[in-house]
Design a protein around this nucleic acid. Structure first.
Lengths: 231, 231
DNA sequence: GGTTGTGAACAAATTCACAGCG
DNA sequence: CGCTGTGAATTTGTTCACAACC
């Protein structure tokens, strides 16, 4: 009966963590079951989507009742691979890297910061919130030691690709890129990106659209048009 | 001829900033024209997608030649509403908020930090990288003063919804949420979210999947199954 | 009665493939 | 001949609507 057809759509995967967080909150609030309706509300989606998404994990609900919160939390954690911690190594001990190292939200959710790397020898040895900044040369040994880790790139754009290469070479197969640059990774390595400026620019698009679309901002004239600038 | 049918798909909008960055780089490198093939490579997508996306902006290319880099930069900036700066107000002067205030990438791309707010009276008055931490009570006046701003939520989860409400009440119509919580905003307000833990959890899913899918981690037994646990 | 699970309908996004034009 | 622009085909994702079941 269950869908359970062992290929969870990407869009669904991206929502599972949101459901999980809602479920954990609900569990903390002592709820023992939850309907798709309620979970949808907490996750900011609609109920049909919740049911479809959950159906990919298996038929874990009870008709007329809803889903058992604890059981769903368990199944979902298992599906997401959250039954054990994933150490995170951050490369780039600048602003963002330090803030991330420092950000409690990771540790709390099973992603302890295992190391902070920087290419700048002057920074090596500094201690940022209990984590010592190390040389990138130590990366392969650390990865070999820890096994599976998630690599976070928090360098300037120009260094991002080289860091990605070094992470991959060291055996890291999951990478989260914060650098404002498009990078590529070998087959078999997962890559996700968070680009803060891009997010602001997307918001800018919709904001400006709301005000009546693109239009000469202040008499500014376009730079020389291309070829078809004829009459 | 041009598509230009005045409704740019969301997926396209999300890629425009990436194209723009690539184009600016290419422009800095003194290229005067660029093919969809090359732009695709720089943006990490395929050429057909680039052409489709650009066609929504209008027919700005020249067959047999490619796109005029400067002209595309201009059109795209205009479309994205990047012909003027957008001041950013950050709410939450904790770790992340301070790092963001501090992060040069915003200012450089036309998003100057106009203010940093915090609910904690003890933090008000502190100066973080040249920006004074202010009380949230000052928000409405500031927004009234600046006009269009982008609001960034960098608070703990529990405060996020209230901050969103106050931003909306103050007239902010573009919000970027970093708090690990689902929030809702009124119609007419754009909301985007960046959830760091969610990104890691998504990576965790694919990583774990690569290792043979979900399976008892260490003899751990699922907590009591729900209703259908019968014989 | 209430709520899930899921086919079927629909919508959005991507990719193909090629005509059209420079 | 090369590269864009875009219809058509395909794939992916969402929503509907209702039978199945507790």
């Amino acid at each position: 009966m269950a869908e359970r057809s062992r290929r969870i759509p990407e869009a669904t995967v991206a929502r599972l963590p949101v459901y999980l967080r809602a479920l954990v909150d609900e569990s903390d609030a002592k709820a023992s079951t939850i309907s798709s309706e309620r979970l949808a509300e907490l996750a900011g989606v609609n109920a049909a989507k919740v049911r479809k998404d959950l159906s990919y994990l298996g038929s874990y609900g009870t008709r007329g009742v809803g889903y058992d919160v604890e059981y769903l939390v368990f199944q979902m954690s298992r599906e997401l691979g959250l039954t054990h911690d994933w150490p995170v190594v951050i490369v780039g001990a600048g602003n963002l890297g330090q803030a991330l190292a420092n950000y409690g939200g990771f540790r709390d959710r099973g992603f302890p910061i295992a190391a902070l790397f920087d290419a700048d020898a002057a920074k090596v040895g500094d201690v940022v919130h209990g984590v010592e900044v190390r040389s990138l040369d130590d990366l392969p040994a650390l990865v070999a030691d820890l096994g599976h880790v998630i690599g976070v790139i928090a360098t300037p754009a120009h260094a991002a690709q080289e860091v990605a290469d070094r992470l991959a070479a060291a055996g890291v197969t999951s990478v989260l890129n914060f650098a404002p640059a498009v990078i590529s990774v070998p087959e078999g390595v997962s890559l996700r990106k968070v680009d803060l400026a891009v997010e602001l620019q997307i918001l800018s698009f919709y904001q400006q659209r709301r005000e009546g679309g693109p239009d000469a901002d202040d008499g500014a004239v376009p730079p020389g048009r291309p070829a078809p600038a004829v009459g």
